[in-house]
């Protein structure tokens, strides 16, 4: 009974996380619309949701949230943007999950998030380069590494701040 209920809760929470991720990226787009950010540089607030999924619900849930996010990008920005989002998102989610589970307790959320942010940008850039068939975009890598670390730390701090409140909800057991 308890296990079944946990599964149901996990599914529900995953759905909420996906919605939260979408809302976060929309919020982020409105927020940064007027700012002169270089292409590809963005806060990645939806990472908070993906990381929470990694930490609490496990890899399948995190990947699902990432895929739903890419699916939504498909609808709003077209197939190219969706593919980039998917490649970056999957690489990032996978890395963060591994860091959280295998190398347990070595990195804080901020650290995991920073590495995750970087991997997200690396995945996107690799996909973009493969798509164009040239390494032209790789010149952009240093900037994206920097922004990945910076904004990754930021989203990590946000998760750090909301985690106690989320834990208090006692969704599991």
């Amino acid at each position: 009974m308890n296990e079944k209920r946990n599964k149901l809760t996990a599914l529900t929470v995953s759905a909420i996380l996906a919605a939260a991720a979408l809302a976060a990226s929309f919020f982020e787009r409105t927020l940064t619309a007027g700012l002169p950010l270089p292409p590809g540089v963005k806060p990645g607030l939806s990472n908070v949701a993906v990381m929470f999924a990694c930490a609490v619900l496990g890899l399948p849930s995190a990947l699902a949230v990432t895929a739903i996010k890419a699916g939504f990008t498909l609808l709003t920005a077209g197939p190219t943007a969706a593919l980039l989002s998917l490649c970056g998102g999957l690489l990032s989610a996978l890395t963060m999950f591994l860091l959280l589970k295998i190398r347990k307790n070595r990195l804080s959320y901020a650290g995991v998030s920073a590495v995750g942010g970087v991997m997200h940008n690396v995945g996107q850039l690799a996909a973009a380069s493969a798509l164009v068939g040239s390494a032209m975009y790789l010149n952009w890598l240093p900037i994206l590494l920097l922004s990945g670390v910076g904004f990754g730390l930021l989203t990590g701090v946000i998760l750090n701040a909301v985690m106690p409140a989320l834990v208090k909800l006692k969704w599991f057991r």
Binding site: N105, S108, A110, L145
Partner: peptide, 25 residues
């Protein structure tokens, strides 16, 4: 889970961030 949430920035974090910054540079 809780200890991770409680502490912000461990030595390992700084090493990871420094490594990435070095790579970027």
């Amino acid at each position: 889970m809780k200890d991770r949430a409680g502490r912000f920035l461990r030595p390992a974090d700084l090493i990871a961030v420094a490594a990435i910054l070095l790579l970027a540079g």
